[in-house]
Design a protein around this nucleic acid. Structure first.
Lengths: 351, 351
DNA sequence: CTGAAAGCGCTTACAG
DNA sequence: CTGAAAGCGCTTACAG
């Protein structure tokens, strides 16, 4: 009972199991671990005794011997994290079945706090560390380069020579733009976030590449903030006054690929407010597939999903194999995004 | 280096420090822990040696002796959790300074998974457990009642006789409705979530109580889903046809208190679409203070904040004191909400 | 003032 | 086939 002040009964130890079964602790240990050689009856008797007493080995003692704590540290600065959360749950899922538990370390952007957490992890002899964050192009405020345990970076800026998993933003952007092309859209605009984000450039380049490949006009991407308000403003820029399509003169876009779902939401609302139909007049695709936003948008938003839970899984499994002594090549692994189709793009012309 | 296959150098042990300083491990231990009696020079020499070698005590060994692992388990089923996240970061912040690390256990609504995590926690000899979830009136899919370590419930249904922290939803609702009254609103409606949620009734009752106290007309709360779509629909019900105010006949509301921010967002959008101004014609208040929604709403949404980070802090500190052997009375502690005023309610009449 | 010994709970060679 | 011994890295009475 949580509120009961009575002294908690100590957990039963191997020594007690051994005594109760009339064997030595060594034999008891071997019986339970399937090690050594003994009669099947002895082994079964010991196992039965352990079961009866509710014996569970003290993981701290085991860790001390094995030099392996079956814990890992998960560092993140994405406190209110819509990015961290799926990633964390992916990591956790990948590890729980291996009996590995995850320490959650909220480091904010605070070097002192980050240092504190890293030291706590090291003191607790975690088997490895996963570093994650809220953007791919920023490093956590702490140096993880020369630890004596494996480190995996996921969705955050890695140290040189490290192993990192990130989403393939370029591929994700291609998915979106190619989807528009497949639907017969011809004048595709791109409204995205600030120039200070690496992904803004990466996605914009993919946008340009696809349009160039398809022989469609490329509009200069509109950079702004990651907000609905910017979505509204961008629609004003795109649909007021003369259009700015490089090849076709003054025609208005019939599709907008947005850098995130909030921008897309703003774009869709602004289009509706000026009497433009989505998807009939203009198709819209977002990025992040933030379910709660994408589904509330009218109509529900088609969006690029970065597969962050899968990314977390991969990071977790790779860390596990590193801890297990398997080698792994350093470098940045880009994991594919996927397009989640809802109703903001319409059907193919022949569909 | 994470990707380097060279054998990791073992961490330096107390034995090495002792050898290097020319003392016994016992003396070294005492020197570093400020225990025992020895000359100031000896102590300082040992400390200096430890510092020079980068000695950090193995927390696993210490835990084994002290019967205290300086870890706690945090169970949650709020995977994509906008509720869990601030709560978790509150817990983590409260504990990190005490050197206590937090195991993140994502149990979903899966009994097997929850059991697995609880056993892992017990095996790892966590000092205590914090159970949290996505709603106050649902129990996690696992029994935490008779563990031999303290358990604190936070924002989830507790076991009888346990210690729990929850938000004061009734008080939060009062805050909202009284704010409307203070601004001179007279016909205040309430649009909220499904009847299956306890908080729906608790908040609705507070809504009725305040209006009754103030002698204002009480409208029957409109129950629906926690979605923007329901916000739209509710506006239709409230503003189409004849009004349904019990005392004043057919007058339309001049204020809507919403059960969450998404409903509020839908209400505000719907009002604007029918040409009603917020806050001039109708004031709107939400619940949850989900920043990203509240700030994107036009105008930005006044909302009730459940202070979940503070709730997490309290839960963490209380667990700490329980672990430290302080007694604490069982029962449910309701922590106050706060009203975050933005622009959806207007200024007071004389403001 | 300092060190040898015992021990936390377990595992793993090594004897018998 | 089973057990005594040593040891993981540390701390804490207890001697000296």
């Amino acid at each position: 009972m949580s509120s009961d002040a009575s002294p908690a009964p100590a957990p039963v130890t191997l020594r007690e199991v051994a005594a109760s079964a009339g064997v030595s602790v060594a034999t008891a240990s071997k019986a339970l671990n399937g090690q050594g050689r003994m009669t099947a009856e002895t082994r079964e008797r010991i196992r039965e005794t352990a079961r009866r007493l509710g014996f569970r080995p003290n993981s701290l003692a085991q860790s001390l011997l094995r030099r392996r704590s079956f814990t890992v540290g998960l560092l993140t600065n994405d406190t209110y994290g819509r990015f961290s959360l799926p990633l964390m749950s992916g990591v956790s899922d990948a590890l729980v079945d291996a009996g590995v538990s995850v320490f959650l370390c909220n480091v904010e952007d605070d070097t002192r706090l980050a240092q504190l957490h890293v030291e706590a992890m090291l003191d607790k002899r975690v088997d490895g560390i996963i570093a994650t964050g809220k953007r791919i192009d920023r490093h956590l405020p702490v140096d993880l380069a020369n630890l004596r345990i494996p480190v995996i970076y996921a969705f955050t800026q890695p140290d040189p020579g490290a192993i990192a998993f990130v989403s393939d933003d370029s591929g994700g952007a291609r998915l979106a733009v190619e989807h528009f092309c497949r639907l017969g859209r011809k004048r595709i605009a791109h409204v995205t976030g600030p120039a200070s984000f690496a992904v803004v450039h990466e996605r914009a380049q993919a946008y340009r590449d696809v349009l160039t490949e398809k022989g469609l006009p490329v509009m200069e991407p509109l950079l702004g903030s990651w907000s609905e308000a910017w979505g509204h403003e961008a629609v004003k820029k795109l649909f007021d006054g003369q259009g700015k399509l490089s090849k076709t003169g003054s025609e208005k876009p019939d599709a907008v690929f947005c850098g995130n779902d909030q921008i897309a939401r703003g774009v869709i609302d602004a289009l509706r407010e000026r009497g433009l139909g989505v998807p009939d007049d203009v198709g819209v695709i977002g990025f992040d597939n933030w379910q709660i936003v994408a589904e509330a948008t009218r109509p529900p938003l088609t969006s690029v999903d970065m597969n962050l839970a899968a990314l977390g899984r991969e990071a977790g499994l790779t860390l596990l194999s590193l801890v297990g002594g398997q080698p792994a090549a350093p470098g940045i692994r880009k994991l594919p995004c996927r397009l989640v189709v809802r109703q903001s793009c319409g059907r193919p012309p022949d569909g």
